[in-house]
Design a protein around this nucleic acid. Structure first.
Length: 707
DNA sequence: CTAAGTCACCTTTTT
DNA sequence: GGTGACTTAG
């Protein structure tokens, strides 16, 4: 195999076979190349069968790309390889083995919304107050417990008050309900395979034997179950190869444990470490800026990127009056770069931001200018109501236990089944399948009309269930939509909104057809699994010449010649939450990730005031991260004040983050300010955890500490 | 039971 | 400025 495209370190990583290896791969150091060559090398030079390789990537898209790159390198079919995200690999294992745990292999995969609505039902069933026992909090607690691999009983015994105990109780019921619904949530996709391996030595050996070589990308963002999974799979043969960069660890908030990478050689005996420090992506100036920022972090492995690339442009700072102004400056600079670089394409540019909410204003500006763009993230296609409704039909057709989907569609489109009737159905549930409950309506005490429509619904689902055994998903869905009269339903409303909804249904039909084309002999359940694990980024077509907009989290692993980062303001990036020392080091790593996406040029932008929730503008200050970049790397010419807007009043000396005292309510922290001056409304989170909104001029606050 | 209208909370980040 | 939960009139 020709390895002349690799530098010496990369070659070492590729050719050193056997035993655990950790590759510290800095941003732009050829990490993907190393992984691709490694897989190709294992197949071609070592003679490993592709089906004995497990490769974990961070997105499904990355998996697809890796597969085709390896194929291009060695020209041998590698269809047998197991490659995908942790979640999709977990799902595939469960499809085959979940019977051991008392589920059927046609299980549904619940997303966050589905799982939250199940939790909500449970809290209501327990007659608990939804204000006191918040479904969202419960969901977070449960997810954390699962990611710590804590059982409901373990959570219960570690609870320190009544409320926490209740959450543990909700957790316990939730686990049972999922099981009764023959459904799993996202966390289960990681945790249940581990459980199978714990309970069945035979299965564990089977998979240890199958996955003779295990490779993991973005290792710095693995969490406890993910570590556990690969640890148990590789325990015997020890052939594990991981690639990562602790400086790019940005998923701590969802349980990713940076110590997985920092302590790799303690977990895996006799491991080797290779550091890739030569960067091929960015200019020297960008790298120096990135370095000056991330080196402020205390918890990091020792390494420093270097490059042979030219110094390049300085980093430009764009200062704006407000978020609208910011958007137009981004647009203006985009147009200018394009003008000065005639061969640059729209797709050479990306606009990054900390939160999805920031995209709207920027989007407006580019739409008005007629620049084609695509937004990744935000409200996902498969999260839309109409799409979820359709998916719920498919799920119930496949899985008759799925009560969450049942509840969703029993009265959609409206067929006269209300809350009362639904409650009566649920009271007959016991441990039956939800669909079987309505197979016999003699026990159900509801009106004639209701009975008729429930019965029609039952027959419809049964009919399509039978059809699904020998009809292709796309034909099936077309018929179903026709039978439900969905087109008429949306068209009759004849609003822009309902028209949009119908278009989304059509897009959904297309996506099924596409999926069918790419995957022979697809069953409905395959498509459903695909859909639940798909993210926006997976559907991004790189061929399209469009400018991209996305959060920095979504941009992980991507690169662009020109990068704009918007909203570099204290409180937004880095984001800070009252009474919680948010992880500033993780925010800094996020900023590092943002900078290192760029090949040629970075624009950092901030606004001096910004609206939140469409409310009054709030004064904002430039992000500390901007000040962490040495002045010599910054192009100050780009700082321009908007003269027309300089007469802003800023007479109140109170600002977000101040600790204040109120005569009546005591001490608290300012978390929000709406408006300016004496009439501004100050939101204060008092130390007794009460939140109050006060008018500044009446509140008579004493500022105890400036933030 | 439905549809239309009001309200509260929201925004970190995602598989 | 958007969503989902709750309310109220038919």
């Amino acid at each position: 195999m020709d390895l002349s495209n690799l530098n010496q370190k990369q070659r070492e990583a590729v050719t050193s076979i056997g035993g655990p290896m950790l590759v510290f791969a800095g941003a732009g150091s050829g990490k993907t190349r190393v992984l691709t060559y490694k897989i190709a090398y294992l197949i071609q030079e070592i003679g490993l069968d592709p089906k004995n390789i497990l490769a974990v990537t961070f997105t499904n898209k990355a998996a697809q790309e890796m597969k085709s790159r390896v194929h291009n390198l060695i020209n041998v079919p590698i269809d047998g390889i197991s490659i995908g995200t942790f979640h999709s690999i977990g799902a595939n294992i469960l499809r085959k083995e979940i019977k051991i745990l008392g589920y059927e292999n046609n299980f549904s995969i619940y997303d966050q919304t589905d799982s939250r609505s199940l939790i909500k039902t449970i809290i209501k069933d327990l007659d608990l107050d939804l204000k006191m026992y918040d479904p969202k909090t419960a969901q977070i607690r449960i997810s954390q417990a699962k990611n710590n691999m804590q059982s409901p009983d373990e959570l219960l015994s570690s609870s320190y008050n009544r409320i926490e105990e209740r959450y543990a109780e909700i957790y316990k019921i939730y686990v049972n309900r999922l099981n009764e619904n023959n459904s799993v949530d996202f966390d289960d996709l990681l945790v249940l395979p581990i459980k199978i391996f714990q309970e069945s030595e035979e299965k564990l050996i089977k998979y240890q034997d199958k996955f003779k070589y295990v490779l993991v990308d973005e290792y710095q963002d693995t969490n406890k179950p993910q570590f556990e999974l690969i640890y148990s799979l590789t325990k015997i043969h020890n052939d594990i190869f991981v690639v990562g960069d602790d400086d790019q660890s940005i998923y701590g908030w969802r349980g990713a444990d940076i110590s997985n990478i920092l302590n790799f050689n303690e977990a895996f005996d006799n491991s080797k470490v290779v550091k890739l420090e030569q960067n091929y992506r960015s200019t020297q100036n960008i790298l120096s800026a990135a370095w000056s920022v991330v080196s402020k972090n205390s918890q990091r492995s020792d390494k420093q990127l270097w490059t042979e690339n030219e110094k390049g442009d300085l980093i430009s700072i764009l200062e704006s009056f407000n978020e609208r102004n910011e958007s137009s400056k981004i647009l203006k600079n985009f147009l200018e770069v394009k003008k000065n670089n005639q061969d640059s394409k729209n797709s050479d540019f990306v606009v990054l931001y900390r939160t999805n909410a920031q995209s709207r204003v920027i989007e407006d500006e580019f739409r008005k200018a007629g620049i084609p763009y695509q937004i990744i993230g935000g409200v996902k296609f498969y999260d839309r109501k109409e799409v979820k409704d359709l998916i719920a039909y498919m799920r119930l057709i496949v899985n008759h236990n799925d009560s969450v989907s049942f509840d969703r569609i029993i009265n959609f489109p409206p067929r006269g089944i209300g809350k009362t009737t639904l409650n009566k159905i649920h009271s007959l549930l016991d441990d039956k399948k939800i669909l079987d409950v309505i197979s016999d309506l003699s026990l159900l005490d509801v009106g004639k009309k209701q009975k008729k429509s429930i019965n029609d619904f039952y027959n419809l689902i049964r009919l399509y269930s039978d059809k699904s055994k020998n009809q292709s998903p796309s034909l099936l869905i077309n018929d179903l939509i026709h039978d439900l009269g969905l087109k008429e339903y949306y068209m009759n409303q004849n609003t822009t909104e309902s028209n949009d909804r119908w278009l989304n249904i059509e897009e959904c039909i297309n996506s099924i057809a596409d999926y069918e084309l790419l995957n022979k002999d697809t069953r409905l359940s395959d498509y459903l699994q695909e859909v639940s694990l798909l993210t926006d980024i997976d559907s991004w077509n790189k061929q399209d010449d469009v400018l991209m907009m996305m959060t920095i989290h979504s941009a992980k692993g991507l690169e662009f010649p020109y990068v704009f980062v918007g909203g570099l303001e204290e409180g937004l990036f880095p984001i800070v939450r009252p009474f919680e020392d948010g992880d500033i080091e993780e925010e800094r790593r996020l900023f590092y990730v943002a900078l290192t996406r760029a090949h040629k040029k970075v624009f950092l932008s901030y606004a001096k005031s910004r609206r939140k929730f469409g409310g009054e503008p709030i004064k904002t200050a430039a992000s500390r991260f901007i000040n962490e970049i040495p002045k010599k790397l910054i192009n100050l010419d780009f700082i321009s004040f908007d003269e027309s807007h300089t007469n802003v009043q800023h007479n109140s000396n109170i600002s977000i983050g101040n600790i204040v005292e109120h005569k009546l309510f005591g001490k608290g922290k300012v978390v929000n300010i709406e408006g300016e001056g004496a009439n501004s409304k100050i939101t204060i989170l008092f130390f007794n955890n009460e939140r109050k909104k006060l008018i500044y001029k009446y509140a008579n606050l004493t500022i105890l500490k400036e933030s």
